[in-house]
């Protein structure tokens, strides 16, 4: 597949989606949205793919929405931002969250606005030490979108979510790691290869089981303990019927390396 605003390759069971508008810090325009949609669709339906990496080219990860697309001249009619969210950002976040495989993010540089929240919607986030996370929305009279108000509350808690969203401060990768907003800060030059290596390792693991873990942990955000216990029972029932569970137990008993198929 060839794209104008992203790069998309599949290797060793891993799909690598690289945002590729480096001159504008990989900010989103309409065409980039449709290309990301297509790449996510391919990731979902290609049976070879068992993990996804999302990263950016150049010095930034993603600066969110390309504001030159949305310039409001004085006196012009106010744009309906809800429409663009409904059509573009929300379906993207929902697809990432629903993808039945691990999604690893390599935040190679600044992640601002929707860019920060796309990163935070991924399952495991690595960030370059020099990368910054900025909820820039408040500076232009907007609110964090792409799941930001939800993700932040669930990762860093309400007090930090409020201040980050209202002050729009830059958070370093290390601070983000300490606060539990991301998994790890790593050296700049290692961030992409770390994410890809992690994804390739995960692509040899029981993908169905990992997808069920993802579902359970996501559901816990709105479930009571009682509901979650029922869900764990149901998901474990499914997991216990996978070929990979059988293989995992057999390999353990036979003291050999398991060979997982992801089913």
């Amino acid at each position: 597949m060839s794209f104008n605003n992203i790069e998309f390759v599949i290797e060793d069971g891993v799909a690598i989606l690289t945002l590729n508008r480096p001159d504008s810090l990989n900010s989103f325009n309409a065409e980039m949205h449709s290309e990301v949609r297509e790449a996510l669709k391919e990731t979902k339906k290609n049976p070879e793919v068992r993990a996804l990496v999302i990263t950016g080219n150049g010095r930034g990860f993603c600066a969110g929405q390309d504001l030159s697309d949305r310039n409001v001249a004085p006196g012009a009619e106010a744009p309906n931002l809800g429409e663009s969210i409904e059509k573009n950002y929300n379906p993207m976040i929902r697809s990432i969250r629903a993808l039945e495989m691990p999604v690893i993010c390599a935040v190679n540089g600044v992640a601002a606005g929707a860019g920060a929240n796309i990163a935070l919607a991924c399952d495991i986030v690595f960030a370059a030490r020099s990368a910054k996370f900025i909820q820039a929305f408040c500076k232009i009279g907007l609110i964090p979108d792409s799941g930001g108000t939800w993700t932040l509350s669930h990762t860093v808690g309400q007090a930090r979510a409020m201040a980050l969203s209202m002050l729009g401060d830059r958070i370093t990768a290390e601070q983000a790691e300490q606060w539990g907003m991301i998994w790890k800060a790593v050296d700049d030059e290692a961030v992409k290869e770390t994410a890809i290596a992690t994804a390739k390792q995960l692509a040899t693991q029981p993908t169905k089981g990992l997808a069920l873990i993802k579902r359970a942990i996501q559901a816990s955000a709105t479930n009571t303990l009682d509901e979650q216990l029922d869900l764990e029972r149901d998901l474990q029932t499914i997991a216990g019927r996978t070929e990979d569970y059988r293989e995992g137990v057999a390999a353990f008993m036979e003291k050999r390396e398991p060979s997982f198929k992801g089913q």
Partner: peptide, 9 residues
């Protein structure tokens, strides 16, 4: 409401 794989079961 259950997970889709469990609906029929």
């Amino acid at each position: 409401v259950v997970i889709p794989e469990r609906t029929i079961e």
